[in-house]
Structure formats: C-alpha cells, structure tokens
Nucleic acid binder design. Sequence first.
DNA 1: GTCTGCGTTGCAAGCGTTTGCAGAAATCGC
DNA 2: GCGATTTCTGCAAACGCTTGCAACGCAGAC
Lengths: 341, 341
Amino acid sequence: MRKRRSLAMNLDAVAEKAGVSTSTVSRVLNNLEIVKSSTRSRVLKVAEELNYHPNLHARSLARGKSRILGIIVSNMENPFFLDIYRTLESDAHAQGLEVVVANTDYRSEQLLASVQLMIGLRVAGLAVIVSEMEEHLIQTVANSRIPAAFYDVGTPQKNITNIRVDYRKGIKKTVSYLNALGHRRMAFVGHHSTLVPISERRKTFLESVHRCSPSAEAKIFAGPDGLDGGRQAARELLESGFRPTAILCVNDLMAVGVMRELREEGLQIPKDVSVTGFDNIKLAEFCSPPLTTNHIPREQIGHIIFQSVLGNGREEYDTGREIVIDPELVVRDSTGVAAKS
Amino acid sequence: MRKRRSLAMNLDAVAEKAGVSTSTVSRVLNNLEIVKSSTRSRVLKVAEELNYHPNLHARSLARGKSRILGIIVSNMENPFFLDIYRTLESDAHAQGLEVVVANTDYRSEQLLASVQLMIGLRVAGLAVIVSEMEEHLIQTVANSRIPAAFYDVGTPQKNITNIRVDYRKGIKKTVSYLNALGHRRMAFVGHHSTLVPISERRKTFLESVHRCSPSAEAKIFAGPDGLDGGRQAARELLESGFRPTAILCVNDLMAVGVMRELREEGLQIPKDVSVTGFDNIKLAEFCSPPLTTNHIPREQIGHIIFQSVLGNGREEYDTGREIVIDPELVVRDSTGVAAKS
DNA sequence: GTCTGCGTTGCAAGCGTTTGCAGAAATCGC
DNA sequence: GCGATTTCTGCAAACGCTTGCAACGCAGAC
C-alpha cells in the first residue's frame, strides 16, 4: 500500500461515515431506485456534511465513456462561431451533457492539440467548426470512431458529417440584387486563403458580376478575419484607387470593419458605396447603418450538428452525410442605388 | 473477469504489440528519460500505428490531479468576459494546461452546476467571472480547497482572491468630464440588480452628479445586459419623457444598444445627446460614432487571475487577497458639449 | 417451521493510467 | 571472466468510481 492521499474526499469516506458500502453510496448518488429510502437519505446527509463531490474522472473511467460534447472552433471572437457554440451548449445541457470547448485561433498546432484533447477525453461526440483542416487530422478523427461533425471541410465519412453553407448561392443572389440597384463596379472582401471553399467564393463573385453585366468591373480584396481584418482590406482597397460602388464582404464582422474605414475616408454609406455581409450577426442590426447581409441560420446549424453527432441514430440527421444550408438575403440600410459616377 | 471492451485502445494493447510492459509504454509517453532509445522508438512507432491516444481521465485519476484550469463566466457574448477568458486560455496553454469553460447565462442553477462540474473535475485552479454569486456557493468553492479567483464578488478568503474594478472612480471621472462639457441632465443605464456592487454604482452616479452641480438632474434606468438590454433601457428612458443631454452606460455593449435606439428616435450623437460606456471593447472603436468609454484592462485582469490561482506561490499575486483595478477614461466621438436646451 | 421470492446491500473485479520498488540486463573495472 | 555498478524494465498497487453477481434479511405461503 502506498501513501494515502487523505485530503481527497471519496466514496469510501462517505460510505464509512454512513455505515454502508461504497456501492450503496454510488447507487444513491446515481439515483438508482433500488436503495431503501432511509439509507438513501442518510447517505445524502453524510455526503452533504463531508462536502463530497464525485470525481468525474473516475466516473468516466469506470463507465468507459464520458458524457461530454467536444467543440472545436477557430475563434470565439467571431459571433458566427460563438452562436453555434452557444446552441450546441444549450442542446448538450438539455441532455445532461457537459461541454468542453477549444479555440484554435486559426493555428494548426492548436487544432492538433485540441483534437488530441478531445480524443483523450473520449468525448461522446465532437463538433469541429474551423475554417481549415488537414486531411491527415480528419483521418485521425475518423479513426477515433467518435461521432463527429465538421463545418465545411473535406468530405463526409462513416462517422463524420459535413455541414456547409452554400456561399455561392448567397453571393450570386447578393450580386444580382446589387446589379438591379445599378451597381456595375463591385469589390469582394474575403479571407486570404488557398483553400478550395474560400477561393471558390472569389471565383463565384467574379463570375456572377460578369454574368449580370458583362461590362461590369469586379475586384477582390482580402484580409485576416475580424473587424481589424475588414478595416485593413478596406484600406488596401482605397489605396488601390479602385472605387467600387458596392462592396460584398464575406462576413459581417469584416463588413463592419470595412464600413469603419470607409467612413474614416469620408465616404457615406450607402450614398457613396453600398456594403453587404454574411452571417447576420446581432451587430449587423445594431451598427450604423444597419447592415444588409446574408442570413446564415447558426442556431439551425448548431441543432443539426448536435443531432448528427448525438442524435441516437433515430433522428433525421445522422452521422456520415453532407448537409447544405442556404443563406438568405436580409436587406437593411447599408445598401442603396448606385451612385452615378 | 468481465467482458473486455476491446474497442478502446489502451496502454496494454500498445505494450503487447511492442513486446514491453505497460509501465515502459507509460514512461515513453511521458518522456521519462530512463527508457532506452531503441525501446522508445519502437514503442512510439507502435503507438502511432495503433492510433493510440492516452485516456486523460485515467491519467488524471492516477496522478491524483488534473492539469485543467476551470473558468466560469456569465456570458461569453459580452466581450468583457470573452476577453478575460481568452487571456486566461492563452496563459494556461502557455503552461501546458487545458481549459474548461462554463457559461452560466446569469442563471444560478447553471452556476451551481458549473461549480460542481469544476470541483468534480478536480481542476487545478478556478476562475469565476460572474456577476452574482450566493455566499453559500462561495463557501462550497472555499471548502473545495481549489485555488480560486472571483471577480467582484464577496470577500477574499484563504484560497480565494477577489478582483474588482473600481467603478465608482470611473463613474466619478466620467460625470465630472461630462459636467465640464456643460451637461446638467444625465441618465445612468445599468443592470437591474439588488446586489451591493451594482446598486453602489447607481448611488455613486447620483452623488457625483449632485456634487458637480447641485441643481443638476439625474435619473437611473436599467435593463438586461447586452445590446438588446441597452436598447430596451433607452426605450424606457425615451418613454419616460426625461431628456438627458448625456447618458452613462455601465458597459459598452449596452451603450451601443442605447445609441441604436436614440438614433431610431432621430436623435444625433453627440449633438443631441452624449453617450459613454465602460470596458472599451473593440466594438467601441468600430461603432458609429466611436464610443467614449472607460477602459478596463481585461488582459491585465486575466493575467492577474491566472497568477493568483496558478502562480506557484512565488509570484506577486497569490491567492487570498483583494485586488482593485482602476478604469481609465478614453474620449472618442460619442460625447460633446451639451446641447443648449 | 421450512421454503420461496423479493427488495436491499455488499463483494470484488475492472476501467486505463502512474509510479515505488525490486529484479534483470548491460556496462565497467581490474 | 567475475563481481560491482549503473541502466533499464517489469510487477503490482493505487487512483475513485461502477456494476454483475451473490448473499442477506424478511415477508408471506404452504
């Protein structure tokens, strides 16, 4: 026998003080009905007195599984990720599951560490909402046999569902909306990235513009994600000398950053230039002017993800599929008829 | 012997395939130097092949402690909380600690559940950044012997540090700044709450206004936290018929909500009414007009919290103290000279 | 007064690690 | 070539819990 770590309160301590066996205490704490109610209340009283809290690690180990939903996101600063996380969290809590989140900050070594963590924790299900992921890591998850859902990355597999938003549709719709308002010189502000889904957005933008009016001009700008990234991209745009009458942004946060920089330059929105976003975050409604954007149903996405990883199979969305979500244009005050140049 | 759950990859499986004992595998995986390098590389190869990931629950159990920092926050939607969380997370990662967060959503049963979770996880340290907490729960944490830091709640104890922001100072400074600009009719927009720290803010506001100019008018409004809460409070203010020339908000998010509603009403900021906030979140810089606010150094707070719960004792901030942070006024464009009424 | 059956409880193995200690293998000195 | 060291490795207990199975006590049936 080794040294006894007497500090830690455990089942045995409670059992001893209550004059029963550990199994009985365990059964009481797990609400197994076979315990006589007098015993039950005595045990509960003792547990309370001793300030006992079950060791969750031991529990998970003994049960051979944990009641934890793992969530990996790129960046909680972006309300898009945050909202999905919040939905997942509330779904999980509703089922008595705990949640462990990890941010990757767009750093791949952090992603790796997060995946390892989740597998090490033997999470019951895993949601990965990041913008880039190497094939190799996807395989690691697939091999772990943990039911998982990914956002817009790779192809679905046995235990992995892939969910993506059809940005192409959203971009097309937005472009033709702006075209109808007379815009013939447009810019797209997105992320720097060589990933297929991202570069596809740029391509779609250019094609859409030219399809609407073959003589229209279209240019691409990019920056890091977030308010600052939007601002930075807008700066580059202004310095490039290109003067679009409308700017499509890949998300609302960047759009707000863009608007900030345009205002700085003395431009008025939407009089001088129209701006649109994607996501329809709460801020889109509160910024000035309120932002025209493409609504992406983040709650719905969250629910779908939850269902597909922990939906017990009998649900509509089970693991191993691809699910596509369509955005929807929400018109507010940041867009208007094109300024005559 | 019971049924063997053959699916789960474990140390034994690796040990067997590599022809060594589990202890050796364990030592390899923990980078204990006593292992011969040929054995070491063989084990690593097998672990890789088998796609082995150590079970973190078993590890924590065996080690008798976990390398986890627990964080409980009210609401990650509020960048104030989010920023502190992010700082804590990065400090923790820098030390090889993992992080588990829980949101309480201002719900006390969620707070209770979160505290239980953290204790059950035997976290190495606990940061509690919530706006309300019952004495009883504070005691639970104190009894758990886990090093903890609380934000603005209760009094410091043996293993608990309390950190708070001196809102009174910030409010006084803001009021006298506005007074100097000629404002004599001011409103304060805060949270509904009977808690001492919150009601003290209201009191401080009223006193400050009257101290600056005894004839000045001051009124209090309140709403839930967040953009919507600010908007709601502004609505009530407008409906009350009170027409302040300046509105102090208890945080930036509410201030942005307030501005939105004022604009809706056709009021111009700061020409018709000045608005100020607290926190100095990123959005304060990006909203329109950029917000005059009281900077609260959230990064610093995060670092202090981390130090005080996991600072190994030899650091400047150790558990069991009270630490007070002063806000600092940042003037932007949402404030100006009072409109002559 | 035995027997059956049921509601309760206890025993002990097992979950996948870590780690003190002892034993085995390799290295060295002479 | 042999004992003394020094490495290296394995054994087995421990971490705190769950849970299948067996055992116990007691009621009612006969």
